[in-house]
């Protein structure tokens, strides 16, 4: 199925969780926050939060800024 991850369309298998997605895309769980369809998903829910077709996922972190 298709989802949008940080603005880019990607294809993933059905029935995967946010945590699976992080592992699949090699994203460290440290120092990130996640939004699914504009709603923040707290870290303790990443395992149970399943992804659906056309979900929009944003994985954010802190970068340099003034």
């Amino acid at each position: 199925m298709k989802i949008i991850l940080n603005g880019e369309e990607i294809l993933i298998n059905n029935n995967i969780s946010l945590l699976d997605l992080l592992e699949l895309k090699n994203i460290s769980q440290k120092n990130i926050a996640i939004e699914k369809n504009r709603k923040i998903i707290t870290k303790n829910s990443w395992r149970k939060e399943k992804l659906n077709e056309n979900d929009i996922i944003e994985v954010i972190t802190a970068v340099g800024g003034g």
Binding site: N6, K25, N26, N31, I32, T61, A62, V63
Partner: peptide
């Protein structure tokens, strides 16, 4: 110290350092 909040770089290596480190 101020930081900005932006999308994480999906392509980077798992062990790449983050500013917060």
């Amino acid at each position: 110290i101020t930081v900005a909040i932006k999308r994480t770089n999906i392509g980077q290596s798992y062990n790449d350092k983050n500013l917060l480190d």
